[in-house]
């Protein structure tokens, strides 16, 4: 490393851009959340009113709790279903089962498809009239399984989770897979010589080495779960699908901030309060996860 003042010149442009567009807005979100402001005109400081409205206004708290519940439910599925799947897929590719190169490529592939096209695919498969699924079911005579899919409130949420999972599952998988390449070979070989079964080898020898990537995937997936927007918006619309089954905090935020047809409810201060709540939840969850993991792995 060099001691020279030249670093100032290198860092300044990036520092200004990053601060102005990434960090300053975070601070302003907190500031706005204390105001009643339509976005234009005067701002009126109302203290914690916006937050009270989110948590205690009967109608608003119902919308908020429903959206937050969906975020949490999605996060739970991501952590307890998708991550084990990602570890399993990564492991199968790591031990080079037949077709492993192709699998790595193809499992990752949906990630590069834009959310609009993912939404289009969801329509192609699940549309009640023209969708592939209903047509196939009718074709093979399973008429009783025909459903309105996203129009059916009891399964819509899980379908959405499947669609989002299909889109993004490859990212966590390749992160874990890259970590598997770092497992010291001699340790694994020693365990094979000692007669460990495949099962024992995975759980006792290899899994502990995967700690860093698994922590990262848990944190990344959770942040992703809490900031869900694109696919729910494209598939379920701004109002969060049938009975709000596809509603998420970011959709609710978007409705009250940028949606202008909501009976005069468009309010930037209120929207800011929602985003501050999301922001706080992310912070708490990330800290909590780090704590849990340091207990879990380091003992």
């Amino acid at each position: 490393m060099t001691k020279s003042k030249a670093y100032i010149g290198f860092i300044t442009p990036g520092f200004i851009l990053y601060s102005l567009f990434m960090i300053v807005p975070l601070g302003f979100a907190i500031y706005y959340s204390f105001f009643n402001w339509s976005g234009l005109g005067s701002m009126e400081c109302i203290g914690l009113e916006n937050f009270k409205r989110i948590f205690f206004d009967p109608r608003m708290s119902r919308i908020f709790n429903n959206a937050l519940g969906n975020n949490f439910r999605y996060m739970a599925i991501a952590v307890f279903v998708f991550i084990p799947l990602q570890i399993l897929m990564a492991y199968l590719i790591h031990i080079k089962i037949h077709g492993h190169n192709l699998f790595r490529l193809m499992i990752f592939l949906p990630y590069v498809i834009s959310p609009s096209i993912i939404g289009f695919f969801a329509l192609l498969v699940f549309d009640p009239n023209i969708g592939i699924l209903n047509n196939v079911l009718l074709g093979i005579g399973l008429n009783q399984l025909v459903s309105s899919w996203f129009g059916n409130p009891s399964i819509a949420f899980y379908l959405l989770v499947v669609v989002i999972g299909w889109n993004g599952i490859g990212v966590g998988m390749v992160i874990i897979l890259a970590n598997m390449k770092n497992i010291p070979q001699d340790v694994v070989e020693a365990s094979i010589i000692d007669g460990a079964s495949v099962w024992q080898r995975f759980w006792l020898v290899e899994l502990p080495f995967l700690e860093p990537s698994i922590i990262n995937v848990v944190v990344l997936s959770s942040i992703f779960a809490l900031t869900q927007f694109d696919i729910p918006f494209i598939v379920g619309g701004l109002n969060g699908g049938v009975n709000g089954k596809l509603d998420f905090l970011n959709l609710m935020f978007f409705r009250y901030t940028f949606g202008d047809a909501y009976f005069g409810e468009t309010a930037l201060g209120f929207g800011a309060a929602i985003s501050v709540v999301v922001f706080t939840i992310i912070l708490c969850i990330a800290i909590l996860q780090k704590l849990v993991f340091s207990r879990l792995f380091k003992r």
Binding site: V24, L26, Y31, L268
Partner: peptide, 9 residues
């Protein structure tokens, strides 16, 4: 903190 969180400011 993804850019979405502070989209309003």
């Amino acid at each position: 903190f993804p850019i979405q969180i502070a989209i309003l400011p």
